[in-house]
Each structure stands twice: as structure tokens, then as C-alpha cells.
Amino acid sequence: MKTPVVRGLAAAAVALGSCLTLAGPAASAGAAPAAPVPTVFFGDSYTANYGIAPVNHEGSERFFCFQAKDNYPAVATRRLADKGVTLDVQSDVSCGGALTHHFWEKQELPFGLGELPPQQDALKYDTQLAVGSMGGNTVGFNRILKQCSAKLRGDDGVLLPGTPVDEDVPAAKCREFFASGDGKEWLDDRFERAGWDLEELLERIAYFSPDAKRVLVGYPRLVPADTNKCLTPAPGQTELPLADIPKDALPFLDQVQKRLDDVMKKAVADAGADFVDLYAHASANTACDGANRGIGGLLEPSQVELLGRKLPWYLHPNERGRDIQAKQVADKVEQVLNR
């Protein structure tokens, strides 16, 4: 939870940043900054764009962040440059598997391969823009998927972090498990934790980088309103987009996404930050939209190989989805910098 000290320091830093901004030269209304904008990207696998090859940091422990060389931060940076908005990217510390608290705590890498410093260490006093996606792992979406899929509880899910919430409850009954009792209590607790942690993250950015515009990026929609679309494999695939997750659980997965979106929007509104609502812009590009899908199917082979085996997408954006992320992020950043 946030401490009064951190909250107070963050508020003071925001005030100081405002004073410094007011004291500086007035920016031209409606024009993006001419000078490069010192920028830090942070986040989890949706910022790193797990599943898209090639991957950064090959040969180092950071390879296991599965950060794509052309992730949405890289593509959005190029899009902005084409519009005359130059980002001076100080660092992109996004890493697959990151929970929100890994913004201020070390992150252990899989297979005991070491640990990474807190993502906040990338922030500098002169950082003017901080952008990224966090919250999905804190809610435990990976654990929810394993609760609802028997296949993910076996070899198919060995590379997806986390365990089912309750292995004694069959995957076929996951919808009822989360609707009441221990399952509902667990889920409510995770959403509460996600809200606290996102508030803490935004406050810490304000403390370490007082002048930084803070942009929290939401998650793209995974499941369509018409779940019947999920009963047909995508072109060239034999597995269903959501594999063996029961059909009655699909609307529940969508509700989890909507609820996370609401938690993120509240944290952003309370902090005076900005939000990129990817869910609202991806309704025609879910995992179940066939050739138009912007999300790789749960067990569909991705572009990334490990030990000669292609890793599953595990419902992460493919290149089409990455480009949707990049466009929405670039548009929001341009808007924010032009204020």
C-alpha cells in the first residue's frame, strides 16, 4: 500500500514540476515540442510484445523478458518521428511476467535465471514522458486462464507463469468458481491490490520525474461480444482461439478485462495522468476474429522459439495487434505533448 510519506513526496514533486514548467519558456499552443522528449517505457509482456520476433537482449538474462525489438514503444516512436515528434528514449524496461509492484521491487526471472532491478530505476529527473502497461499480471489473468483451461495446467502451459487459483476445482467449472465463495474473494482481492499498486506506480513516476507526463496503456480486447466466433479455428490453425476454455467462461474473461479497464481508468483519473483505452479500439481484432485477429490464439504458435520450439502466443498481440497498440499510443502521446 502507499505510505503517507510517498504520497506527500509525490504531491510535492508534482507541485515542483508544475512550478518549473510555468517558469520555463511558454510552448507554442498546438505544437509538439521541437526538442527530443526524454522518455521511459515500462511495463509487462503487453508492452514488451511477447511473441513477436526478433527479441532484444539475445544472449543475456534479459532475453527472458521476451521484449520484441519492434514492440509498440519502438513502433510508436517511429510513428511519432514521422510526424515531427522526436522521443529521446532513455530506456525501455518492459519485461514479460512483470507485476505492477515490480515497478519498485526487483523482478525474478523464470527458471532461476536471475533478477532485474525495479523498473523505476530507469526514471531520471529530466524524464518528461513515461509510458507503459501494467496491471494484468497483478490481477492474475494468467492464473485465471489456468483455472479455466485443463490444457494450460499441463505441458502446454509450462511457460506461462503462475498456477491455477485452485487446482482441486476442474477447469470446466471455472465460471462458477469465480462467481462466489473463495474464487470471488480471491478475484476481488486481486482487483483491490491492482488499484492500490497502480496508484503507487503513478505516484512514484511523479516523485522521481516531476516533469513527466504519465501515460498508462490499457489492454486490447481478447474476447468478442459474439463468443460464437471463438468456436471456429483461425485460418491455418487447428486449435480454437481460446483452446479448451469453456464457452460459458468466455464472457467472464471479457468481464475481467472490462473491470481491469475501470480500475486503470480510476487510478489515472485520481492521479491526473492519461490513459490509452485499447479495449475500445480493438473490438474487431480479438483473438476470435479470424484473419483480422490482432491477438494470437491461446495455444497458437508465436514467432518466438525457445530450444527449437515455437512458444504459444498465450493471447498476446500479434503484429497487427502491435500496430494497433502503437497507433493509439502515438496518437495519445502526441495529444499529451501538444497540451
Rank of each mutant, 00 (worst) to 15 (best):
L307D: 10
K2G: 06
P73M: 09
V276M: 08
F275L: 09
M264D: 09
A150V: 03
A29M: 13
G17Q: 15
D289C: 06
G24S: 15
R214V: 05
F41W: 09
I324M: 15
R214S: 07
V89N: 02
A32L: 09
N338S: 11
Y46S: 14
R339N: 14
A11K: 00
A15I: 08
Y72G: 06
A26V: 10
A291W: 02
F252P: 11
D126P: 13
Y279E: 09
E239I: 06
N228T: 13
A130E: 12
G181C: 10
V158F: 14
A150L: 00
K83M: 11
K310D: 02
F252M: 11
A48W: 01
V75P: 07
A282F: 08
K229Y: 03
G218K: 02
V55W: 01
T127N: 07
Y279C: 06
A34T: 13
C148P: 07
H281C: 10
D289P: 04
V14K: 14
S133A: 15
N49Y: 01
A206N: 06
G308I: 09
V268N: 01
Q328I: 06
A267I: 03
P118Y: 09
A76K: 05
A98K: 08
R339M: 13
F63M: 05
K266T: 14
N49L: 03
S94C: 03
P54V: 01
C19Y: 15
N285S: 15
R204W: 01
R309L: 07
A280K: 13
E105L: 13
A27R: 14
E200L: 12
K151L: 11
E334M: 08
L216M: 00
E200F: 11
V40L: 13
K265V: 12
G297V: 05
W313M: 05
V263G: 04
H281L: 15
P210Y: 04
N292Y: 00
T238S: 08
D289A: 06
